[in-house]
């Protein structure tokens, strides 16, 4: 394994940014989100999750894909040139890497989404979490706060340095010719990282157990959950905003709209939210999810029941805790999981 001294990171970033677009968690007005790195940018590798997950880099909130223009004899279509060139995502947390894996199941399986496929080409350097937050629960989904198997390169924070391990062909390629910045890690450092990984997972799992909920309940009662009482009480306090869906690393619903002025316009797709009342509004005026109850139920059922049923048991939640932290009225998916567990006990 390799390592890089933290003091050398700006030099490394400068080097990486020469050959590719480099995204890092940057602090703008106190808000940390992934953004293109420039010299002097305020990088923040210490805060755990960015507010907006890196999904917006592979699946932008708005993406125009065709321009159209009314010519004399026909409507003329011009596809938008898709972005090319390498990019690197540095400092992605393991839950967010897992989030991309969930999105892959949606967009890269048949029918293949070429816009997504093109944007998914980047190289991912994941950063292990040494100290998960109270709202983190990735271990619930058999993920590890300290390890992201799907990342191209895995980094562990050792205090003074980052331990560096290439995990894919892309990762190996990026690691080559980097001797100026990287040095060999000692056996002791490797052991420390291993220990950090174990401690983080244990700490998070212990915190989750302290809250007394587990996923087993959901697996057993997924079908019965549809008529559960909780949807009534949760939806009553829901504000109907889209925070939970838009800060979610796995939510992937989108809408397609046209923007046109005069004789020309463009067609774009953009994130949509099942929390919005017009999400299922049909042209006829019929709305199969007329109240907040159906909408709140949909969001949780999709993540915990429908998605795993369709994708071989893979859940549509990676336990990043963003929705738990950001919901203005503390609607908490872990409480839904707990209630579902309670359903079995009552049955």
């Amino acid at each position: 394994m390799k390592k890089i001294k933290k003091g050398d990171l700006p030099l490394l970033w400068e080097h990486l940014a020469r050959g590719a677009l480099l995204y890092l968690p940057l602090n703008e007005d106190g808000v940390v989100n992934f953004a293109p790195w420039q010299k002097g940018a305020r990088v923040n590798l210490d805060s755990l999750n960015t507010v907006v997950p890196p999904k917006n880099l592979v699946f932008p909130q708005s993406e125009t894909y065709v321009h159209f223009e009314q010519k004399a004899d026909a409507l003329d279509f011009t596809p938008v040139q898709e972005p090319k060139g390498d990019y690197i995502l540095f400092g992605v947390r393991p839950c967010d890497v897992a989030g991309l894996t969930v999105l892959d199941r949606v967009f890269l399986e048949d029918p293949l989404d070429s816009l997504y496929e093109n944007r998914r080409r980047g190289t991912i350097l994941a950063l292990a979490c040494n100290e998960p937050d109270q709202s983190c629960f990735c271990t619930t989904f058999d993920l590890e706060p300290g390890f992201a198997p799907a990342a191209d390169i895995m980094l562990w924070d050792l205090g003074e340095a980052l331990l560096w391990q290439a995990q894919s062909a892309k990762g190996v390629a990026l690691t080559q010719n980097m001797d100026v910045y990287l040095s060999e890690a000692t056996a002791q450092e490797e052991k420390t990282a291993e220990q950090l990984q174990v401690t983080a997972a244990a700490a998070e799992a212990a915190a989750v157990r302290e809250q007394e909920w587990a996923l087993d309940g959901v697996k057993a009662v997924a079908k019965e959950m549809f008529d559960a009482q909780i949807w009534e009480s949760l939806s009553r306090r829901c504000l109907g905003c889209g925070i939970c869906t838009y800060v979610c690393p796995t939510c992937h619903c989108f809408d397609i709209e046209d923007f046109s002025r005069g004789e020309q316009g463009e067609r774009f797709r953009c994130w949509d939210s099942c929390m919005f009342k017009d999400f299922t509004l049909m042209a006829s005026g019929e709305n199969p999810r007329p109240s907040r109850k159906e909408r709140v139920r949909q969001r949780f059922m999709h993540k915990l029941s429908y998605f795993p049923a369709r994708h071989g048991g893979l859940h549509g939640c990676v336990g990043c805790g963003r929705c738990v932290r950001k919901c203005p009225v503390s609607i908490d998916i872990t409480q839904v999981i707990k209630e579902a567990g309670g359903l079995i006990n009552r049955a």
Binding site: D29, N33, C241, G242, Y246, V247, S273
Partner: peptide
């Protein structure tokens, strides 16, 4: 411009 660029259009401000 910088503030509004960050908006994710969740409408929480309106709904609350």
């Amino acid at each position: 411009e910088r503030q509004f660029s960050r908006c994710i259009r969740c409408f929480a401000c309106r709904n609350v």
